[in-house]
């Protein structure tokens, strides 16, 4: 990640790591839809720093209202219901950051993303990380850590997947993986980054750039 220029605002400096990595993937001046945009930090960053026409959908009303009050074009809505109403090819990028595991129909949401956007950027916490595997192996209980911090009966993360699961889904759906990377808990891209097997063991989060076949 290059050094942030001076004019980057507070919000961008403190933006979640995965959002910064996503922002790097977006070409300047693009049309962007951010699904599960929270308070709109990425939208604001893309608008101000990349001259993007960036919009968002957020399911949490308080977050959506915060974004709108900041002058950002965000609608209160639900990826599982609302994507179908956008026309084909309306966006250059459709972003789903750390939300895939929480939607009801991940496969359908991915298809919709690549229908309404030329490219899809998807980030998700990797359920294949060695610590989760270890925890499940030795304790026999559902893992909990910073990312998976809610008990199984309360978690909104109803569709966890691993990096290799995601590769398999993309292959099955004929989505082209243009770029991918995994990062560890420090946010560093490590030497294992070119091997899906190693990334699936050591990557805490995964980030994929997809396009239609």
């Amino acid at each position: 990640m290059p050094d942030a220029p001076q004019e980057i605002r507070f919000v961008a400096k403190n933006m979640r790591l995965d959002l910064r990595l996503i922002a790097e993937m977006v070409a300047p001046g693009s049309r962007v839809l951010d699904i599960g945009c929270g308070d709109g930090a990425l939208i604001e960053h893309l608008t101000r720093q990349k001259g993007a026409d960036a919009r968002g959908i957020e399911i949490d009303m308080a977050e959506a209202t915060k974004a709108v009050a900041a002058g950002l074009p965000v609608i209160h809505g639900d990826a599982d219901q609302d994507l179908v109403h956008y026309p084909d090819g309306a966006f250059d990028y459709v972003i789903l950051s750390r939300t895939l595991q929480a939607v009801e129909r991940p496969q359908w949401v991915l298809r919709q993303m690549l229908r309404i956007g030329a490219r899809a950027i998807v980030s998700f916490p990797n359920f294949g990380h060695w610590q989760l595997r270890w925890k499940l192996l030795v304790s026999g209980r559902m893992p909990d850590n910073e990312t998976w911090d809610r008990p199984w009966y309360e978690t909104p993360n109803i569709h966890p997947c691993t990096i290799r699961d995601f590769f398999a889904l993309c292959a099955m759906e004929s989505h082209v993986v243009e770029r991918w990377l995994a990062v560890d808990d420090k946010g560093l891209r490590s030497p294992w980054k070119r091997s899906p097997w190693l990334a699936n063991l050591f990557g805490e989060q995964a980030l994929f750039l997809l396009r239609r076949e």
């Binding site: 959506a64 709108v68 074009p73 965000v74 609608i75 956008y86 026309p87």
Partner: peptide
């Protein structure tokens, strides 16, 4: 949205 308009919505 169907018209790809720039829209904010809150309830």
């Amino acid at each position: 949205n169907a018209a790809a308009a720039n829209v904010s919505f809150v309830e």
